[in-house]
Design a protein around this nucleic acid. Structure first.
Lengths: 194, 194
DNA sequence: GTCTATAGATAGATAGAC
DNA sequence: GTCTATCTATCTATAGAC
């Protein structure tokens, strides 16, 4: 299955380069030389640049879905699961400092390009939005679970953007602490209401 | 002063196109045809693409500085001034829905490109950061004025990014209301401490 | 100060040998 | 399935006529 291997290597390499340099700024030649194949071979696997973008987004969707499933398996209570989401900012801190959030920056770029795949990229946000909403509902906030999910997504996006701009680690740590404190208050209020 | 006019038209047009399509995706030809001049004439005013980017950032800096000065002239108390900042999200709502925040998206793109002008673009954030910090200090929070300024900047960035992605006006309105409520609490706490 | 013409590099994409 | 060679379009940038 050498074909399958090459295809996967192309997608993984494109995923990384699209994140680090941006979609528009990454050429077929960049990807081909990074994978170690010729441009001609490249076109045997993907006919257009749009095709590889779709494959990259699909891979990211799969990755993130596995991530949330792992959190569900490892953490039993919704608050701990949501904390795992917040911790992405710390776990991927160095990457975010250099290249921003891989979901937010891709979505923004595709929106500007008027690219058809923008809707697919937004699915990446929707995946976390829906998963977080489910956790907030279980935490005792079924009525405004979706609003809380969007609010947390929004805060993490803002933190990623400003950390990328200012590169101020103290700011990132404060934002993470603030989100966890906000989450703790929600959990405490929910317990008191019972 | 036909030269000066042409130069200004180039900068204004580039400013708009860089915002709507992104810096990398906008070519000299795009700018030249939008202005209504030839590509050759273009190079009489700007020798490289980097030069025009610097001019665009400088113009945005001037615009935003005038904006904050206008807010200072029109609003006497710091809380009203900070509210004017929050209101940008509503005033420019339609543009943000389609193209995101002009400062956040430019900074992110330049960071990915490893572009030298990224530092200049971050100055745009710093301008608002410093101005907001001054207002928070006057509001009675001199000790953590800069932290509060970054927190508000962060929230507005997150709101802009998610509004651009989901295009959900109700979400944007909720975020604006939440920021104003947070500001009101800060002002009330500051008054009580006196 | 504005234009046309064009260089030189690189982009996405294709054809065909092996 | 991988390669080389090549096409066409477009990009940034320059030269020189008017």
């Amino acid at each position: 299955m050498a074909q399958r291997d090459t295809r996967e290597r192309i997608v993984s390499t494109a995923d990384l380069l699209f994140y680090e340099r941006g979609y528009e700024a990454t050429s077929f030649g960049d990807i081909a030389s990074a994978v170690g194949i010729s441009r001609g071979n490249f076109y045997h696997h993907f006919k257009t640049k749009d095709e590889i973008l779709s494959a990259v987004i699909a891979q990211r969707l799969g990755d993130r879905q596995m991530m949330t499933q792992r959190w569900e398996a490892q953490e039993s209570d919704p608050r701990s699961r949501i904390e795992r989401f917040i911790d992405i900012l710390l776990v991927n801190g160095e990457k975010i400092r250099r290249h921003g959030c891989p979901i937010g920056t891709l979505t923004s770029e595709l929106a500007k390009l008027g690219h058809a795949a923008q809707a697919e990229a937004v699915h990446l946000f929707s995946l976390f939005r829906d998963w977080l909403a489910e956790q907030f509902a279980r935490l005792g906030r079924p009525a405004d679970a979706d609003e809380l999910a969007l609010e947390l997504l929004s805060r993490s996006q803002g933190a990623a953007t400003l950390y990328n701009a200012f590169q101020d680690r103290a700011f990132l740590d404060r934002e993470v602490a603030a989100m966890k404190h906000w989450l703790q208050q929600l959990a405490a209020d929910a317990s008191a209401a019972k």
